[in-house]
Computed example of a mutant assay.
Amino acid sequence: MTDPIEQRVAVVTGAGGGIGKAIALEMAADGAAVVVNDLGTSVSGDGTDQSAAQAVVDEIEAAGGRAVANTDNVADYASASNIIATAMDTFGRLDAVINNAGILRDRMFHKMDPDEWKAVIDVHLHGTFNVSRAAAPIFRQQEAGAYVHMTSTSGLIGNRGQANYSAAKAGIASLSKSIALDMAAFNVRSNCISPFAWSRMIGSIPTDTPEQQARVDKLKSMTPDKVAVLATYLASDRAADVSGQIFAARGNEIFLMGQSRPLRGIHRSEGWDPETIASEAMPALQGQFYPLEVSGEVFSWDPV
């Protein structure tokens, strides 16, 4: 049986290590040709190392697969367009884009400076737009294509010290839904994955307390290959009827994540003022308020 992704071409950004590398290897093993994009920066986005992407290409080719390295910057639209051009120039087609590139510059909100905010937004949110937009004319013309974007429970649920990252990841979830809606007429799909996996991106999580150390130990058991198989599925024709969704991959668990919908409404024929909102509306609604929880408190059980 021919694998649904065989003879397809995929771009994977941030594929020099961690989750991106696992996705590139998984897709190549399933027969896809892969553009391995990575600048080779540090977790904070500093420096470059062009050998990171090439090392993954070498590994794919050693296993009999097809791949090409690319070191363009997703945060710049012209540079991101070169990533897509690499796929077309090398393999003559493009079937899937996996937006995985990212950096971290964690800081409590009241201490975060504008440069820390902008750097993370540029790579995650603008980078996802840039690469996706560059691929859109190709997908539209061929009336086929799949986007897979990496969001995070930091954006879907919340985390402390990550206002920039959380905002970017929440924005990516909304961007994915808009792409799914706008591109549906061309048979183009767009979905998100919120990955739980140990990588250098979360290697900076503090371990100052026994509770923090226990959380890190749990994360270390969740390997990137668990995310890679879901990304490969979503990029393949097996997922032909799946679009506009947000999934989480956590060990051997796959979750369908909720999307914002009204929980409860309250009407007052006379209208509202601050006093009646305080005395009537809020008491009626507060039973369904969301608590100030972080991701680790919502996903509080051990991965299976």
Rank of each mutant, 00 (worst) to 15 (best):
M1K: 07
M1I: 10
P4M: 09
P4G: 05
Q7E: 14
R8T: 15
G14C: 09
G20H: 09
A22V: 09
A24W: 04
E26T: 15
A29W: 06
A29I: 04
G31E: 03
A32N: 03
A32R: 01
A33D: 08
V35S: 05
D38V: 07
G40W: 12
T41L: 02
G45E: 04
T48M: 08
A53N: 07
Q54G: 09
A55D: 10
D58H: 08
N70P: 04
N70F: 04
N70G: 03
T71F: 04
T71W: 02
V74C: 04
Y77G: 00
S79Y: 14
A80T: 13
A85E: 06
A85H: 13
M88S: 07
D95H: 13
N99D: 12
N100L: 02
N100F: 05
N100G: 05
G102K: 04
I103N: 01
R107C: 09
M108H: 13
K111T: 14
E116Q: 11
V120S: 03
V120M: 06
L125W: 06
H126A: 07
H126M: 07
F129P: 02
R140P: 01
R140T: 14
Q141T: 14
Q142V: 11
G145D: 02
V148M: 03
H149V: 02
S152A: 08
T153N: 09
G155V: 03
G155A: 08
G158R: 06
G161S: 14
Q162H: 12
N164L: 11
Y165E: 06
Y165T: 07
G171H: 12
A173G: 11
K177W: 10
I179L: 13
A180P: 15
A180S: 10
A180D: 03
M183F: 15
N187R: 12
R189G: 05
R189K: 14
S190E: 01
N191H: 08
S194M: 05
F196G: 00
F196D: 00
M201T: 03
S204L: 09
T207G: 03
E211Y: 10
Q212C: 08
R215F: 15
D217N: 11
L219D: 03
L219R: 03
K220Y: 07
M222L: 08
P224I: 01
D225L: 01
K226R: 13
A228N: 07
T232K: 04
T232I: 01
Y233N: 05
L234R: 02
A239R: 07
A239S: 13
D241W: 12
G244M: 12
Q245V: 14
Q245P: 07
Q245I: 11
R250M: 02
I254C: 05
I254E: 00
G258L: 09
S260A: 13
W272P: 06
D273Q: 05
A278F: 10
E280I: 15
Q286D: 10
G287D: 12
E293I: 15
E293S: 13
S295V: 01
G296A: 12
E297W: 04
W301Q: 05
D302R: 00
P303R: 00
